[in-house]
Design a protein around this nucleic acid. Structure first.
Lengths: 248, 248
DNA sequence: CGTTTGGTTGAAATGTGTCAAACTTTGTGG
DNA sequence: CCACAAAGTTTGACACATTTCAACCAAACG
């Protein structure tokens, strides 16, 4: 629940799910000069090898980072939801080592690196908050390594669904165990390192077990405990401030 | 090649492989109060769930971060070599979401979080350097996700070996295409998400193809170009300042 | 020198990938 | 609003990379 008008802004909501900000800090963040753009689905925002001079804040929609292998295989490294700043790392890493693309239609806000740097200089706690946000990203990458490396398809997909629901819930995008989850089975496949066909069969298994209802871009969790157990999901790695809000 | 005496210190060598530091900054880093300890192989330094008040700098030896699944499977997320600060993230993430353990006997230096914070306050560029170091860690995690998710065993191991050689070379630990690589096949298995048995067979394939010579904890690269191609290895994601020093 | 740890081998079991086709939904232009 | 195209989902049969189990061998170590 928003405690003030400012909380309505996705970036602040997200930062507040990770730590607490003073009103002055919130205002400072909201005053960042930002160029807001609407993008269509399946569009690249930045590409591997680019040397961007700005960051991209996701305001509405779903996006992902990915890399291609020489043989044309794609690995999705991370899904991004409203409030995330998927390429915050470009602030310190000059050359992007992955591409960032939309999954759905997206509203994004571009912020010049210089503006972010100024903000960080003026408000060291905000600098820490941004740093922390990139560290949580890293924690999610680590969990994905475990997920892909050690779990078979069934648990792997269950875990991914748990993570998405938990993250969406933390920014208020889950109602009644139901949320928007618009990625295609092919995209789920590229994220989990499973073939599209097998994702399809495994989702049927999850449905058959009465855990979920996933259709037409909408996910309904029918049995949270069951899904959590299937994916051995423990939300600690997301480092949320209010983990209670995460557990259904 | 060390350009001054200070470069002899692993932490500075490492930071300088990622960016350039002024002499004053180097001195400041070297003046950090540090408790140096020698640890035995296969010892935990910190564990998942801990809330450490200090960071751990690896001065000598090999270490790794890992997580266990409830069924006792282990996933190694990252290998660490001299100069790395494996749990720098704990500066901003209070609860550790992975364990950190030694692979070999290690010399490590513990630095209080407060000392690091003071240093970051006094030298914003160093704060940026540390931030950058955690971002490079994140970039490596992303590459591992791709490696585990999209490549089969042969390429996966080749890629891992390329990465280790490149990182070791960047801190001066490779001579004549030969370096210390003391992890067991079981550890390579846990890092790549392959069974130990299959790691064994795949290493034999790599040897049979004339790419490497790995025995008794020593790796010799016989055909760098061949190994690089097998693993589709491109070192960009390591964000090294002198990428030339990386290519053999 | 025995014990432990790590490496190697073979055979059988299996989860997952591949290929190819059909079906369903979504989106769009006439 | 229908018709068509495009995109996404579902299905079946088969191939295969990798796992598992179990045993044996080699090296390291106290």
């Amino acid at each position: 629940m928003p405690t003030s008008l400012h909380d309505a802004h996705p970036i602040v909501t997200k930062l507040e799910s990770i730590l607490t900000l003073s009103d002055e800090e919130k205002v400072a963040i909201l005053s960042l000069p930002m160029q807001v753009v609407t993008l269509r689905p399946d569009q690249d925002i930045v590409r591997e090898g680019d040397r961007p001079l700005r960051c991209c804040a996701l305001l509405e929609g779903f996006a992902c980072t990915y890399k291609m292998t020489p043989n044309g295989k794609r690995q999705i490294m991370s899904f991004y939801i409203p409030g995330d700043i998927p390429d915050l790392q470009s602030l310190h890493l000059n050359t992007l080592d992955n591409s960032l693309g939309t999954l759905t239609s997206c509203r994004v806000g571009f912020i010049q690196h210089e503006s972010v740097r100024d903000l960080c200089r003026a408000y060291p706690r905000i600098a820490g908050a941004f740093w922390r946000e990139t560290l949580v990203d890293g924690a999610i990458f680590r969990e994905w390594i475990l997920n892909i490396g050690q779990r078979e398809a069934y648990g792997r997909l269950a875990h991914l669904l748990c993570e998405m629901v938990t993250r969406l819930r933390s920014v208020g995008l889950v109602q009644d165990d139901t949320c928007n989850l618009p990625m295609t089975q092919g995209e789920l496949a590229d994220a989990t390192g499973i073939s599209t066909v097998h994702v399809n069969r495994t989702l049927q298994d999850l449905r058959g077990a009465g855990l979920i209802n996933l259709k037409g871009g909408t996910l309904q969790v029918l049995d949270w405990k069951g899904l959590r157990d299937a994916g051995e999901f423990h939300p600690g790695y997301l480092h949320l401030v209010r983990p209670n809000a995460a557990a259904a």
